[in-house]
Design a protein around this nucleic acid. Structure first.
Lengths: 205, 205
DNA sequence: TTATTTTTGTTAATCAATTAACAAATTAAT
DNA sequence: ATTAATTTGTTAATTGATTAACAAAAATAA
């Protein structure tokens, strides 16, 4: 099946998250303009996104929330379908562990954490066990992990990245800027808050 | 002067950050394709971005690093020109404080932190003082703060957001998804790692 | 001197994302 | 019944971002 545009996928994930708060009522409906307002986007965009996944609404009452969530679940792979690991259990690493795991909303499972600091290794953080980075190949292969989250900025992170990729990781999210050698076929995203801050500083007034 | 495209601003911030590691040598130069490789983008994009800010390179040796950093500084406002605050000093809040402050690279100054937890108030975190949220109007106005970073997902965050905006904040970065009422003229960005994870899970094979 | 190579600078073309426009469906009101 | 109001579904238009294409500049090699 044809892949959806990346931006649409991003919004589908956001629709699902905000809608899950509205799901209490079995029979609740939502209009495109209401869903749009929750995400601060244009209602046409909502309708277009839903059109792309083949979801139909009702001319009078809008879109059925429960059905929409179910279709988004199906479209963005079924829940718990992808496994991930996190590198680094410092402040940021721990924050992310607590934010995404255990969560009934996020369908990506965090299978393990890794660190280089002996003080952090062989402990559990909110249910996620932390191993020495040397265990990456073993654990990653064993659990069929495809996504890695990087939260440490050590100079020597490149060997860790290489080990992850060698072991089958296909997507990397890096929260600490820094040039990394990453093959072209790896899905890579970098988020550094400083970039966002500087962009914002430029545009406000 | 005409505003630059948002994506160009984002990349300028990234160019500056990676180049600052190359600045040691007073007279170092870099080619567009080398800078491009560091950011995993197309060299044409680098040249186009630099063209937009009116920076010229040398046909033989590329772009002068030091001069380029200076021009980016000038383009993205001068260093230390914008003030920010952070809401919440939990795990994520502390991680961000340590990541951006004090930093000679990020030109946005973190002026204060706020929390609702009495155990966290009136303490200093890596040099940033934490106040009770009731102090928002006073501190924000006093320091001419224009940017706020949200790291708490409390149900009652809307009044905090309203206080920030009333006190003059023009840009908000939200790290915890959740519908917020934000006026149209506020520059707003939301980053929830779960969205990124789900998008990635969809695209990798 | 005359090619050859390399890299910038810029326009044009392409691709992606958003928004506008409006027909079709449905209900409610007159 | 007819009109008005509302909202979806879809195509077309627009806007924004990226990439391709290539001339101009400068140095090097033949």
């Amino acid at each position: 099946m044809e892949k959806l545009p990346p931006k649409t996928v991003e919004r589908l994930s956001q629709y699902r998250r905000v809608l899950s708060k509205y799901e209490d009522d079995e029979n609740s409906y939502i209009f495109s303009h209401d869903l749009a307002r929750l995400l601060k986007i244009n209602p046409v965009q909502v309708r277009r996104d839903l059109m792309l996944i083949g979801f139909s609404g009702n001319y009078r009452s809008g879109y059925r929330v429960q059905e929409l969530i179910m279709l988004i679940n199906k479209t963005l792979k079924t829940p718990k379908s992808q496994n991930s690991v996190i590198i680094g259990v410092g402040r940021l690493g721990k924050a992310i562990i607590h934010h995404i795991y255990p969560s009934n909303v996020c369908p990506v499972t965090l299978k393990a954490a890794f660190d280089i600091d002996p003080a952090k290794i062989n402990k559990e953080y909110n249910g996620v066990f932390c191993y020495d980075v040397s265990k990456i190949p073993e654990i990653v292969k064993e659990n069929n992990v495809k996504i890695a989250i990087l939260t440490i900025s050590d100079e020597d992170i490149q060997p860790i990245v290489d080990a992850l990729i060698d072991s089958g990781v296909k997507g990397i999210i890096n929260y600490v800027a820094g040039p990394l050698k990453i093959p072209k076929d790896i899905y890579f995203k970098e988020y550094d808050i400083r970039t966002t801050l500087e962009e914002m500083a430029y545009f406000i007034e």
